[in-house]
Write a protein that binds this DNA or RNA. Sequence first.
DNA 1: CCAAAGATCGTG
DNA 2: ACGATCTTTGGG
Length: 203
Amino acid sequence: MSHRADVVRRARALLGRTISGHGVTVRITEVEAYGGCEDPASHAYTRTPRSEIMYGPEYRLYVYRSYGIHFCANVVTGPTEIGAAVLLRAGEVTSGHELARFRRGETPPERDVQLARGPGNLAQALGITLADLGTDLLADHEQGDDGEFTGVRLGPECRGRPRIASGPRVGVSKAADVPWRFWLDGDPTVSAYRRSPRAPTPG
DNA sequence: CCAAAGATCGTG
DNA sequence: ACGATCTTTGGG
C-alpha cells in the first residue's frame, strides 16, 4: 500500500468520527488529505520548523494560522518519514451548541449547520488555537478540578459505511487535479467548494 | 532585511 | 471582487 493510498484511507476514516475541543463536540463531515513530502500542496512539502510537527507521531494536532485571521486544525497521520496529515474542513456540532454559537459570534440556532462549516469556522467552534498545537488526540481524557473535560480529543472510530463523495481540494493551487477532498454525501454542514484563484483553469 | 503568498471568510 | 490581518518563507 502506497503512502498516498494510506493518507487517503485515513482521511476517509475520519469522516463520521467525532472530535471534541474545549467543551464542544462535532461529527466530522468533510476532510482533505495532504501527502506530506510527496505532495506539493502540503505544508510538509518543504520541511521547515512550522511543518516539523507533521514529521512527528501520528494523531497529534497540527494547527496553523491562515491569512492572519483563522486557525486550521489537522490530524497528523504519518508515517514520520512522510509527514502526511488530514485537514478538518467541516463538521456537525453534536454537543456544546451554546458555547459554539458564542465562539462563532452569537449566531442564531437556525444557522447551526454553519457553526463548523469551513476549516476556520470548525477550529473556532472547537476553541482550537496555536496553544493546542501538538495535542495527542488519542490520549486519555484530562479533567479539570471541576470534572469537566478540557482539551482536544478524537472520539471512537466510526463503525458504519457512510456514503462518501470526493473532489479537488479547496483553495489549493498545486496538485489541483487530485481528488483528495472527501465529505459525507448530502450532508448540509459540508462547506461550499471554492477553487484557488491561482489554480490552473481546466481545459 | 523585506516582500509576498497563503489549505479563509464574510460582505458587497 | 475585496479586505481583514499575520506568520512563514525565500530571496537579496
